[in-house]
């Protein structure tokens, strides 16, 4: 393995280490806080809050096609709880962005 590959490997392992530390840091912090039993509902609400904090700005910055894909996913998940159908349908809508945009332009 060349010296450059060795350096690259070191950078890649550093990236993996940073991600691993984020995975264990929350749990270890939680161990310190767990004696405060009343915090449990707060801790359990965190992933949902985080998801909303990531989804909503993305939707705000997204296009009309992105919004359409999101609505499709919400409807499929709400009615049928089918993750595969929701994901694939949403991705097909995203991939058809160019065609849909051309079609919308042709209408106007």
């Amino acid at each position: 393995m060349s010296e450059q590959s060795g350096e690259l490997g070191l950078v890649l392992l550093s990236i993996a280490l940073v991600v691993y530390l984020t995975r264990i840091a929350g749990y270890l912090l939680g161990q310190r806080l767990r004696h405060i039993g009343r915090l449990r509902p707060v801790l359990e609400a965190l992933p949902g809050c985080a998801l909303m904090a990531l989804i909503v700005p993305a939707v705000y910055r997204g296009s009309l096609i992105d919004l359409s894909a999101l609505v499709f996913v919400v409807i499929v998940m709400w009615k049928w709880d089918n993750i595969v159908a929701a994901t694939f349908g949403g991705l097909i809508i995203l991939l058809s962005e160019n065609s849909l945009t051309e079609w919308l332009h042709s209408l106007t």
Binding site: M52, A53, L70
Partner: peptide, 29 residues
């Protein structure tokens, strides 16, 4: 936008799971 779509699937699992903290999620959003 594929990432937010997958996250939306997860969020819907939470919403339909019924053990939620819906007000907290709405306020975060």
């Amino acid at each position: 936008f594929a990432g937010p779509l997958v996250m939306t699937c997860m969020m819907m699992l939470f919403v339909k799971g019924g053990r939620g903290h819906k007000l907290a999620w709405v306020v975060s959003g």
